[in-house]
Amino acid sequence: MKKIGILTINDYNNYGNRLQNYAAQEVLKSLGYHVETVINNTDFNKKNNKSTISNNKIQKIKKITPQKILKKVALLLRNNYFYNKRLETFRNQRIKVFKEFTSSYIIETDISITESNIPNEIVDRYDYFVTGSDQVWNPNYRKGSPIDFLTFAPKNKRIAFAPSFGVSEIPKEYHQNYKKWLTEMHGLSVREEAGAKIIKNLTGRNATVLIDPTLMLTKEKWLSISKLPLNKPKGKYLLTYFLGDISRERKKYIKEIAENNDLQIVNLLQIKEKFAYMAGPDELIDYISTASILCTDSFHGAVFSILLETPFIIYDRENQSSTHSMNSRIDTLLSTFRLESRLAKNIKNNKEIFEVDFSHVQAILDEERRKTYGYLKAVLNI
Rank of each mutant, 00 (worst) to 15 (best):
Gln264His: 06
Tyr373Val: 00
Ser335Thr: 13
Gly16Asn: 08
Arg142Leu: 15
Leu75Met: 09
Glu121Ala: 05
Asp43Glu: 09
Ser226Val: 01
Val35Trp: 14
Gln176Pro: 00
Ala378Trp: 04
Glu352Phe: 01
Ile147Leu: 15
Phe242Asp: 01
Lys179Gly: 03
Ser341Val: 06
Pro146Glu: 12
Ser298Arg: 02
Ile254Asn: 06
Ala344Cys: 08
Val167Lys: 08
Lys57Asp: 13
Asp245Tyr: 14
Asn327Trp: 12
Arg205Pro: 01
Arg369Phe: 04
Thr336Ile: 00
Asn381Thr: 03
Ile118Met: 06
Trp181Phe: 14
Ser322His: 09
Asn267Thr: 02
Gln25Arg: 04
Gln59Lys: 11
Ser226Ala: 09
Glu273His: 13
Leu333Ser: 07
Tyr375Lys: 09
Arg158Leu: 14
Arg78Ser: 07
Phe242Ser: 00
Lys351Asn: 10
Thr109Val: 09
Gly301Arg: 04
Ser359Asp: 09
Arg142Thr: 12
Asn327Thr: 01
Arg370Gln: 14
Leu228Cys: 02
Asp331Leu: 12
Trp137Lys: 08
Asn201His: 05
Tyr287Met: 00
Phe149Gly: 07
Glu256Asp: 13
Phe90His: 06
Thr37Leu: 15
Thr183His: 07
Asp357Val: 07
Asn41Leu: 09
Tyr128Lys: 13
Ile293Thr: 03
Ala24Ile: 08
Lys371Gly: 05
Asn319His: 09
Leu343Arg: 15
Gln135Trp: 06
Gln20Trp: 08
Arg18Val: 11
Lys155Asn: 13
Ser247Lys: 07
Ser30Pro: 08
Ile61Glu: 12
Trp222Phe: 09
Lys63Met: 11
Gly280Met: 08
Pro154Arg: 05
Leu284Val: 10
Lys236Arg: 13
Val73His: 01
Gly374Val: 04
Ile347Lys: 06
Asn117Trp: 03
Val27Met: 11
Ala258Met: 11
Lys47Gln: 12
Gly235Gln: 06
Asn79Gly: 05
Met1Tyr: 10
Asn45Gln: 11
Gly32Thr: 10
Glu192Val: 08
Asn350Gln: 15
Arg329His: 10
Val136Arg: 00
Thr42Phe: 11
Leu333Glu: 06
Asn117Leu: 08
Asp286Ile: 00
Glu26Thr: 05
Gly32Ile: 14
Leu339Val: 00
Gly301Gln: 01
Val130His: 03
